[in-house]
């Protein structure tokens, strides 16, 4: 900055030198850039969503939504069923593990090992989990691809998420509740079960919804566990039959695998339409779940505020 002091003796507050002018210019350019980039980010998401959903709408035909080999009905059912199975497995284990970590695990070596384990599990590439599942749940038990193995593989992916949400929820509780319960002669477990767990339901539910949303979209972990075929007969309700919809030990291609398969094994002419419809359904599920999680956590935040007021 070079301000001519002789001329601007008393005018210094009004002096705008070229450096300052440049600084203001850069500032305005940068601000504009920030607006443009962030705006295009939002536009990209909107375009992406509209494209996928619109693609699905265009592909709509009675056949696409049918529960047959050319439709996506069976895959939709498989997806929901698989996510349900995986939650049945991962929610109790994840919550219990989170409780152990927050309440029982001795500080030091055990807690550190748990932390490392959770970090490792949550950063595993899902294809690696899929391979592990393929080896352990399919090859080692000498069976065919099946929904249950797929659910186990997805559980490995959602366990760390549910464990961490439970842990965080417990750690966020006021210590007074725990002490109050213990001072009334409750055991540690009774305190957890009757006071701490009910008080943590909100955040844990949000975590479960997120885990479910992730499960719907999972594909790589299912490639070699749940399998890439599905053969359901909706009139067979004997659960031991390999074509019964509810039999968890039958192969069960999910929506995301169907999208992937339409690319690699595009044998039928309608594969593109099927992929478009399946993508649109996946997209809508993701929107519903992420909005649901958001609404739930907002509702709970409001509720607890109201209670405290």
């Amino acid at each position: 900055m070079t301000v001519d002091m002789t001329n601007s003796d008393k005018q210094y507050l009004r002096g705008v030198d070229s450096g300052l002018r440049r600084a203001h210019l850069f500032d305005e350019i940068a601000t504009a850039a920030f607006y443009i980039v962030s705006g295009s980010f939002v536009l990209l998401l909107i375009a992406f969503t509209l494209y996928v959903v619109w693609g699905g709408v265009q592909a709509i035909s009675p056949e696409i939504f049918s529960f047959s080999e050319t439709g996506i009905g069976n895959q939709f059912f498989n997806t929901v069923y698989l996510v349900f199975l995986s939650l049945v497995i991962s929610v109790p284990i994840g919550i219990a593990a989170g409780i152990y970590m927050a309440e029982y695990a001795p500080e030091g070596r055990v807690t550190n090992s748990l932390r490392i384990a959770i970090e490792t599990l949550s950063s595993l590439p899902s294809i690696v989990v899929g391979l592990f599942g393929y080896l352990v749940f399919i090859i080692m038990v000498n069976t065919q691809w099946n929904l249950f193995s797929g659910a186990l593989a997805v559980s490995i992916l959602s366990l760390p998420l549910i464990t961490t949400t439970t842990y965080d929820a417990f750690k966020a509780l006021p210590l007074g509740w725990k002490h109050g319960s213990l001072a009334l002669g409750a055991t540690h477990w009774e305190t957890i079960w009757h006071v701490m767990l009910p008080a943590s339901v909100g955040p844990i539910m949000t975590g479960i919804i997120l885990a479910a949303g992730r499960g719907f979209g999972e594909a790589a972990a299912l490639l070699y566990t749940a399998g890439m075929s599905t053969d359901i007969n909706w009139s067979v309700w004997d659960i031991t039959s390999p074509v019964c919809p509810l039999n968890p030990f039958r192969p069960g291609e999910t929506l995301s695998l169907q999208v992937w398969a339409s690319r690699t094994e595009a044998t039928s002419a309608s594969a593109g339409d099927v992929a478009a419809a399946a993508s649109a359904v996946l997209m809508i599920m993701v929107l519903v779940f992420s909005i649901g999680a958001r609404l739930l956590s907002r509702h709970l935040a409001k509720k607890s505020e109201g209670e405290n007021a």
Partner: peptide
């Protein structure tokens, strides 16, 4: 159970 306690901060359960 025989020695009850009341804390500095009121701590009713939710």
């Amino acid at each position: 159970r025989h020695v009850g306690m009341v804390f500095q901060q009121p701590n009713p359960f939710p």
